[in-house]
C-alpha cells in the first residue's frame, strides 16, 4: 500500500518535472514580440496583451 503510493508519487513528479518546464518554455517562446521593423514610438506598451491583465 505504502509502496504503491510511493511509486505513484514518483511517477507523477517525474512527469511534472518533464512536462511543466517544456510547457513553460513553449509558452514563453510564444509570447508576442514586436517585429524588428516596428516603429520606435508606440501607443501600446511593448508586450502588453489582454491576457496580462490579472
Amino acid at each position: 500500500m505504502q509502496r504503491r503510493h510511493r511509486r505513484a508519487h514518483a511517477a507523477i513528479w517525474t512527469l511534472l518535472a518533464i512536462v511543466l518546464p517544456v510547457a513553460l518554455a513553449v509558452i514563453f517562446l510564444s509570447y508576442p514580440r514586436l517585429s524588428r521593423d516596428a516603429p520606435a514610438i508606440r501607443l501600446d506598451e511593448p508586450g502588453k496583451t489582454a491576457a496580462g491583465q490579472s
Binding site: L16, V19, L20, A23, L24, I27, F28, Y31, P46, G47, K48, T49, A51, G52, Q53, S54
Partner: peptide, 17 residues
C-alpha cells in the same frame, strides 16, 4: 499545482512585466 503553473505562465506573466 500543474494547472496553477500554467494559469500563471499564460496569464499573469504574459505581459513580461
Amino acid at each position: 499545482y500543474a494547472a496553477v503553473v500554467l494559469h500563471v505562465a499564460l496569464g499573469a506573466l504574459a505581459d513580461g512585466r
